[in-house]
Nucleic acid binder design. Structure first.
Length: 432
DNA sequence: TCTGGGGTCCTAGGACCC
DNA sequence: TCTGGGGTCCTAGGACCC
């Protein structure tokens, strides 16, 4: 039996999640905006047809949206994450091996399914996901991940295929590869595309037939792997156990510019608080916290400043109090008053770690040990309060967070968290 | 005159992804 | 007024060691 991998993904996933809970959105152009209502990150077919591009800034398309009746939503990650989990539960009914690749994409191992039964199974899968979660999907099947990705792309672009494309058959596959531009291949970005075009590559078939050695020179082993994957040689195995996370970043643009130190300290403290929650969820700790903040490149004419510093902790920790202390230290180390009469107007700040390790396995410090025995129960109690009463219900006083945060991220058009907050459940009206 | 060689680890930067 | 956030992998080059 030949190896077969399927890639299933949600169509305009965030938009589809919104549609599940609001039937009035069917057939209507819908977009979902990034954090801060910055730019469009998901668009339905109707919205794409209006010319709205991926990543287009909201302020540039707002008028168009109003004119054309486009429904715009702020990101509702709580909702999308929950819908994603539901979809994956369905996938697991159809395949013994599922790799969750992103919030809206999963790879399924279909090697045990007979070749002539795969398309049928994929159709059944789509219908079941649609019925059980409300999410429309597309499925691509191929002998490698790269080819499954490509098949998925074909399934999405050719409506006649009914949402499923199987590239298992070698001749059929070869025909498709001649017809599709190399820029569509998973892993070929702007830089690689320019290099390949310079080598005279146009179609995916051209890339597949290239000598891998010079490609490795130009595009590293990544490019070489893509060639083999296109030939049907598997170089990217299914990752069934999610790898332990290596880094963690909490960064946000402010909804308005920040000019004073106290506010900046609040902002990085809020980010550090969030980082603590993320680390504790994985039982991870860090010994280094990098803090950065900078002005905006869009504020032309304003004085520019960008700083970043790394604060070292005595030993690995995920204690919010310790992380806040480090974050504030990062600001106090780098804060300067502007030399002239124009202050720096900061647009974004963040905290980043890149050295995560399992806290239990991490080495204790000889000097300056943190009090883990006290920290763990305190953090657990805080997390439980915030879980029960909503994020931010309990925060350390040390964060210095004020109720009124003029800089906080904007979510002015967010839908309810229909599936995870009892108070936000959708209402059904029964007609007597 | 002649200035080893090989290994590891870390970091910064590039590229790509969703 | 208004332009997102969070990841991964790879390589080159320096520091350091024996």
């Amino acid at each position: 039996m030949s190896r077969a991998i399927a890639l299933i993904d949600g169509n305009s996933f965030y938009c589809s999640c919104e549609r599940v809970f609001d039937p009035k959105l069917a057939g209507v152009p819908v977009i979902v905006l990034s954090n801060n209502d910055g730019c469009a990150v998901a668009r339905t077919a109707e919205a794409k047809a209006l010319g709205i591009k991926m990543g287009e800034p909201w302020f540039k398309i707002r008028d168009l949206c109003k004119r054309e009746g486009v429904r715009a939503f702020s990101s509702n990650y709580t909702l999308y994450g929950d819908m994603s989990a539901r979809a994956n539960a369905v996938y697991r009914d159809f395949s013994p091996a599922v790799e969750i690749y992103s919030i809206d994409e999963s790879f399924l191992d279909l090697s045990d399914v007979r070749e002539d039964r795969r398309v049928e199974l994929a159709r059944d899968l789509r219908a079941t996901v649609r019925a059980w979660t409300g999410i429309p999907t597309c499925v691509g099947i191929g002998p490698t991940k790269t080819l499954a990705k490509l098949a998925n792309h074909i399934a999405k672009t050719i409506p006649d295929l009914g949402g499923v494309c199987d590239l298992s058959d070698e001749d059929e596959r070869a025909a498709w590869l001649c017809r599709i531009h190399v820029g569509e291949v998973w892993g070929i970005g702007r830089a690689s595309l320019a290099k390949l075009e310079a080598m005279g590559v146009d179609s995916i078939a051209d890339l597949r037939d290239l000598d891998p050695r010079p490609v490795r020179k130009a595009m590293t082993v990544v490019g070489e792997r893509i060639i083999y994957e296109l030939r049907g040689v598997c170089c990217l195995p299914l990752e069934l156990m999610p790898a332990q996370r290596k880094g963690c970043a909490v960064t946000r643009s402010f909804s308005s510019r920040i000019e004073d130190r106290a506010t900046m300290e609040q902002a990085v403290s809020a980010h550090a608080t969030r980082m603590g929650e993320k680390l504790r969820r994985g039982g991870l700790g860090t010994t280094h916290v990098s803090v950065f903040y900078h002005t905006s490149e869009h504020d032309r004419g304003d004085p520019m400043r960008s700083v970043s510093t790394t604060v070292t902790l005595p030993e690995a920790t995920n204690d919010t109090l310790a992380l806040i202390k480090a974050a504030r230290e990062g600001v106090s180390r780098t804060w300067r008053e502007a030399p002239g009469d124009r202050p720096w107007r900061y647009s974004k700040a963040g905290v980043i770690t890149t050295d995560l390790k399992l806290l239990e396995e991490s080495q204790r410090a000889l000097i300056g040990q943190l009090d883990r025995e006290r920290s763990a129960p305190l953090m657990a109690a805080m997390d439980e309060c915030n879980r029960r009463f909503g994020r931010g219900a309990v925060v350390p006083a040390r964060a210095g967070l004020e109720k009124k945060r003029t800089w906080s991220t904007k979510f002015e058009m967010r839908s309810p968290r229909y599936t995870t907050q009892v108070s936000e459940l959708p209402t059904a009206h029964a007609i007597p």
